[in-house]
Design a binder for these strands. Structure first.
Lengths: 204, 204
DNA sequence: CTTTTTGCACTGACCGGTCAGTCTAAGACT
DNA sequence: AGTCTTAGACTGACCGGTCAGTGCAAAAAG
């Protein structure tokens, strides 16, 4: 059977899964270690056997989770490039990838937004690194698009990247929370339209 | 400053001010009532004389705060209309108003984002009402713009409204936290450009 | 005189973290 | 084979501290 190495890995994974939903629902401080342990089906001591503290558990969770997002955005951009799509197509593909990601891991993104702009918290620097990695993927696509002349050279790359990220994030979270009856295609096309300026009355 | 209003109103205001920054920094659960009272320069008993509980204090704070935002967005839209501007101009003015608001009350918006998409929390319904009021202001401008033909009839109004709101919110919070050296005009014009589709290489 | 605020001691539930001990499977020794 | 040892993973009762909320008498404000 699975030897000790795998067993531990498995326990850690279950603790992550338990923690991410609980913390997304209730916030870090009002989620108790007992709750996390219970939902993961392990004893409280096991949490501390696997992680130095509640905070460390949370930090590792964040790091692991956002790595998944970054990889997924990067993959979307790369695939578009391989298919010979434009850089604007790549942005569109990344919007889609972002929406897919939030559909799969809603709790993770929920918790990310809830913590990102707080100050004086232990995991502040972890979050900043993590944010920078995600935004950097968007920025590099924007930069390429400006280089190839697809987008205006006037573009403020860092600001636009963070605005795009925010637009997708909030729209997706709102979609999940308040209009879950919409399809992902509806959300995607609303965002695409916004991005491509068709909002401003240019009829197709 | 003015000591307008009754004595009681004054202490309530000071409690709001103390609570909003503390909770934005630390979150609701890890902010103690003693801290709030101390920062407001008031005895702990006074907190409970004025508010039924910590939760109620927070709820009233949210309600009061977002009312300010809604009023400010509405005012921006109305002023544009009075000046005879288009509905797209009104959207632009609302973006500006949103940025101004976040500049003035960063903690409030910080805390709003942190709590909005949580579930199972006492103030969930308060937040939903509050969100609906703010989004409704944007939606009504979008609706008018569609009616006058300024914007495409294909526009998905609720989704676009929440995407716009999110775009401004996240861009502004990122601006404050990570790029405070930028001027409000830079942020504003980056967002305007995004909205008016000039991202896609179309020069004005 | 009424409303509001103060100061402060107190309670009881709750929670992060600890620790001595249990379980199990894989050797090691006889 | 049977018995003993070791190491890693896990357990849960327990401890010490924290904090929302209470109670109340006395002072301040209006």
């Amino acid at each position: 059977m699975d030897s000790s190495g795998t067993r531990r890995q498995n326990t850690r994974r279950r603790l992550f899964e338990a923690a991410v939903t609980l913390i997304a629902e209730q916030g870090f401080s009002s989620t108790t270690v007992d709750e996390i342990a219970e939902r993961a089906g392990v004893a409280k001591g096991t949490v501390y056997y696997n992680f130095a503290s509640k905070t460390v558990l949370f930090e590792e969770l964040l790091r692991h989770g956002i790595e998944l997002l970054t990889d997924s955005l990067q993959a979307a951009a790369d695939e578009t490039a391989e298919r010979g799509g434009s850089r604007v197509d790549a942005l569109d593909a990344m919007i889609r990838a972002g929406l897919d990601f939030i559909t799969r891991y809603p709790a993770l993104m929920q918790l990310y937004v809830a913590e990102l702009w707080r100050t004086n918290r232990a995991w502040q620097s972890t979050l900043m690194q993590v944010r920078q990695k995600a935004i950097a993927v968007i920025e590099s696509v924007l930069r390429e698009a400006v280089a190839t002349g697809e987008l205006s050279a006037e573009l403020d790359i860092p600001l636009t990247a963070s605005a795009l990220f925010g637009m997708v994030l909030v729209a997706a979270l709102d979609w999940q929370s308040f209009q879950p009856e919409r399809s992902i295609d509806e959300v995607h096309s609303a965002l695409s339209r916004l991005l491509q300026g068709r909002v401003s009355g240019v009829r197709p």
